[in-house]
Design a protein around this nucleic acid. Structure first.
Lengths: 344, 344
DNA sequence: CTGAAAGCGCTAACAC
DNA sequence: GTGTTAGCGCTTTCAG
């Protein structure tokens, strides 16, 4: 491996000068610069990032902690994050905890051990928040990427997405279409991560003067399979439903499948709406009507925040960045899974 | 940040000793060890990976180069890779080139600059192979993860998957079901990446004495959308098709959509089969019959190879590992998208 | 068994 | 403008 020193020798200068021309710092004579550049080219020199990181005291990497790489939402977000950090010269290290606290702990330890300069956390709920707070106290910049609890201030810098609003928008769409008997499928416990989406749904319903259905809400997980099960359960419990609100696209897709299993026509017999607008939403048939969440924007905001924190000094950052930045509001994307009721 | 030295001071020993107890090297007195461990715990010490990497001359990371994180196959493979490398104490750095040679170059430069100790490349065709070969010559371990060209020996260590066989298996399934008028949708150019899958398909057809249809093959990209377009084109050109072979699951899913668009019942009017068995395949309705490729196994083989290479010395590794290791054969997974013809 | 010392390759003051 | 000089935090011979 060619080193700085070899380049320096070949160019007849000292290491400091090479470093200077490479990083554009300090003043370097024009002809010297040329000589150095030539040597670099000739020797095919590439600076050793590890050494640089050690010398600078910080690695050029940002970590993205995700609980499950299996959720298709993950790559879309990761891609956005990767591009944002790359634009700033950083690299992305993926930390897939697989919902395993031990695995998560291992990653966080590595991060403290300067695996990464900053950490982005995707699904704060599946993660040991206290561990993250401890990490932050040790001086590691941390930001939560999708805070969805408007009632509680996040324990760490976060980007918030208004999922309450998303829930409302979804419900309003259904209501405007004329639906009254609307069921709900949640991708989390009732008290879990999706609670505000559901509250938004309920709010819209009550504003419209529509009562929630008895047994009209089924909770599950944030997966297609769970959504399918929930869909079946819901449809069995309340057969005359005309629409189903799902708290996320994955379960919504599952509901679509349940409808197919039962021979129900969507949207003729049943309308279905989700939240997020993952790619799959438009790739499935019927294409899913959903409330699009600003994925890319959230990723960019999160990266912006982490960069700012990384630029700053100690644990608590003297000129601390706003602890909460809000991404723009979710917006309705009408596709083929919703229609006026009774068309079937 | 607590350092080795601080721990050493606190334990009343020297750095070397701390290092020894931490890594289990050398002999350390039992009581000394205890003292050191106590200090470590007390100070919450975590070794600095950057410094360690510098001192050891190699980072604890492996890079995975992918051309497009958008392909849903990516996360499944990445997950398998991530878990395999983690098990060995390495970290995964994701390098998403986005099909941009400049971006790819930037990553490879960084890797030479010891971003990673070894590189796994997923989609060799979308990548500048020569660059990878150059990388290898500079001493960086590189392995190609899914070599699918049985006729050309790979230019680099690779794990091969028998896609020719996969194509045959798919076709044979259709044929055994009684189909004769079978179209093909390719997720690449005819001469492109999926050629061997297609050749396998053709081979099975000819062995069964079935002629390929005139205009019965449409080429496109490896995406759902392209598959849908191809499906429409194919169905328009050869309306009396009873089955379609797709060279990959994504295009197969697109064909499913095209069928839905046209009001065709699958599998009543049309059978569809894909290759790979990505998760989506069973999440879609009708669930896709496909030929499962050993994703996890390939990932593990690839990781095994890269680890072996990393253990060895120079560019060409004295006791070079087999340059080609083959993953087990693809196997048929029958689901709901195929049936005997003429049931519609 | 434990300590001392010499780097790994690069950066960052500060001299010249 | 360019060279000198210290490290960054850890590993690793090699003495003692």
């Amino acid at each position: 491996m060619t080193t700085l020193a070899e380049v320096a020798r070949k160019a007849g200068v000292t290491g400091a000068t090479v470093s200077n021309v490479l990083r554009g710092r300090g003043k370097v004579g024009n002809e010297t610069r040329e000589r150095v550049l030539a040597a670099v080219r000739e020797l095919n020199y590439r600076p050793n990032l590890t050494a640089r990181a050690l010398a600078e005291g910080k690695p050029q990497t940002v970590a993205l902690v995700v609980s499950s790489i299996a959720n298709p939402f993950y790559p879309e977000f990761a891609l956005a994050v990767e591009q944002a950090v790359r634009k700033l010269g950083y690299f992305l290290v993926v930390c897939n905890t697989n919902d395993d606290p031990a695995q998560e702990r291992a990653y966080l330890d590595a991060i403290v051990g300067s695996l990464a300069h900053g950490v982005l956390v995707m699904n704060a709920d599946f993660v040991q928040i206290e561990e993250l707070v401890a990490l932050r106290q040790r001086g590691v910049p941390v930001v939560l990427c999708m805070w969805e609890k408007p009632d509680t201030p996040p324990p760490l810098p976060s980007v918030a997405v208004d999922f309450f609003r998303a829930g409302m928008v979804a419900a309003e769409h259904l209501i405007k279409l004329g639906h009254r008997r609307i069921g709900a499928v949640l991708g989390s416990e009732l008290s879990g991560n999706h609670i505000w989406r559901y509250r938004g749904f309920c709010e819209a319903m009550s504003r419209a003067g529509i009562d929630l259905l008895e047994n009209g809400t089924v909770c599950g997980h944030d997966t297609i399979d769970a959504g399918r099960n929930a869909g079946h359960a819901l449809l069995a419990a309340v057969p005359d439903l005309t629409a189903i609100f799902a708290s996320n696209d994955l379960p919504a897709l599952g509901v679509l499948q349940a409808a197919a299993d039962l021979g129900l026509d969507v949207p003729g017999d049943l309308s279905v709406i989700g939240i997020t607008d993952i790619q799959l939403a438009h790739q499935v048939r019927p294409a899913l009507t959903t409330v699009a969440v600003p994925i890319q924007e959230s990723a960019e905001l999160a990266v912006e925040m982490i960069m700012q924190m990384m630029r700053e000094k100690g644990p608590e950052g003297s000129s601390a960045p706003a602890m909460l930045r809000e991404a723009s509001v979710p917006r309705l994307v009408v596709r083929a899974s919703t229609a006026r009721p009774g068309k079937g």
